[in-house]
């Protein structure tokens, strides 16, 4: 999946996460994480985001994450939404999503 523009999803409400993604100038993956549960879930969240990027074959991405205590499924949904928006893809690619 190629990121052709900046994609943003989510909010800063409690239990939500705001994720902004765009292509990386050095063609690599970089995750900037800010989380209210960083000490206890920081590594877990990074790993989860890396896994999703890998599965969706995103090789160049600057991912900015501002987490307000979102659950895994919320982080996943917001990242997927942001990636689809950044890639400009309208229809769902289920082979990547499942």
């Amino acid at each position: 999946m190629n990121l052709i523009r900046t994609g943003k999803a989510g909010t800063l409400e409690s239990s939500d996460v705001m994720i902004t993604v765009k292509g990386h100038s050095e063609n690599r993956v970089e995750i900037k994480l800010k989380s209210i549960v960083e000490k206890r879930f920081g590594r877990h969240i990074r790993r989860q985001i890396e896994d999703i990027l890998e599965r969706m074959e995103v090789n160049s991405a600057l991912v900015d994450v501002d987490d307000r205590g979102a659950l895994d499924c919320v982080i996943q949904a917001r990242l997927e939404t942001a990636l689809y928006r950044a890639a400009g893809i309208q229809s769902l690619r289920w082979e990547e999503i499942q």
Binding site: C73, Q76, A77, T81, R85, I97
Partner: peptide
């Protein structure tokens, strides 16, 4: 799109 992903997950 965001809501669809959220409810799906």
């Amino acid at each position: 799109d965001a809501a669809r992903f959220l409810i799906f997950r």
